[in-house]
Design a protein around this nucleic acid. Sequence first.
DNA 1: GCAATTCGGAACGATTTGGTCCGAATTAGC
DNA 2: GCTAATTCGGACCAAATCGTTCCGAATTGC
Lengths: 137, 137
Amino acid sequence: MRLSNLADYAVVAMRAAAGHCGSQMWSAAQLADQTGLPAPTVQKLVSRLSAAGLLRSTRGANGGIRLARPAAAINLADIIEAVEGPIAMTQCSDGPSGCTIEHSCGARPHWPQVNRAIRGALENITLADLAKEDVAA
Amino acid sequence: MRLSNLADYAVVAMRAAAGHCGSQMWSAAQLADQTGLPAPTVQKLVSRLSAAGLLRSTRGANGGIRLARPAAAINLADIIEAVEGPIAMTQCSDGPSGCTIEHSCGARPHWPQVNRAIRGALENITLADLAKEDVAA
DNA sequence: GCAATTCGGAACGATTTGGTCCGAATTAGC
DNA sequence: GCTAATTCGGACCAAATCGTTCCGAATTGC
């Protein structure tokens, strides 16, 4: 029930990218130096976020990374899914699951409802909200 | 962002305990046999759930376990917290956290809001809801 | 008092996660 | 056209947590 450190760092990095560079080009090394996170970790995050389509990377001498979408169009669910995979409380939520008690698991039909609730809560928080200095609620 | 197998099994076990034995006395071994879960795993679950106050255990020859509270008064947040600890997305949510980027972590003030949303979603699901055969939503 | 049955805690192994490193690709400059 | 610098992308390794299993302590019934 606790998201991994990678996802946590991803949120921090994305917030820094959204707040400081806007649509400017930014390098992963600079982002690491600015956030204080380990540089290799930021590289890994950038790799996954780029693969998920949240960041647009440009190679070359003066290359870098920038947001692929406006900050208001990116929410926590997108970031977490990009780093940790699908948001699903249980393995049986999506697929055959492989657990041996499928037939007797009466709780299984109720998990999708929980998943939707969690996902909805995460989708309501966007990068624009996180960029604000004051706490909303 | 995925709860551990222990928590998943805990929900299944609690649902079985609520649905089949009501306030009757039940043994961990029978519960394991009934749910199809490994017996030692159920034992561990019972230990944690008892320590959390969700189950009342009775030792002795004809001992066993039973729900400490009515099924309607136990929700998913209680079960998950009993098995996995506090529901907090990040380490810095509760305490000094020890992370080195506290000062520059602008996202930190927003996590409590997310935590409350997640917790609220889990608190809305009670054991009584899970015991029902048909899916609510 | 004895024995059977139970829960509680401790130790081991496996899996996932986090961190680090090196190679491939691309562009600027010469 | 070529070289060189800088970048991202993927693969490897160590660590921590999770999951499982086992054994001991406690309690009640006979």
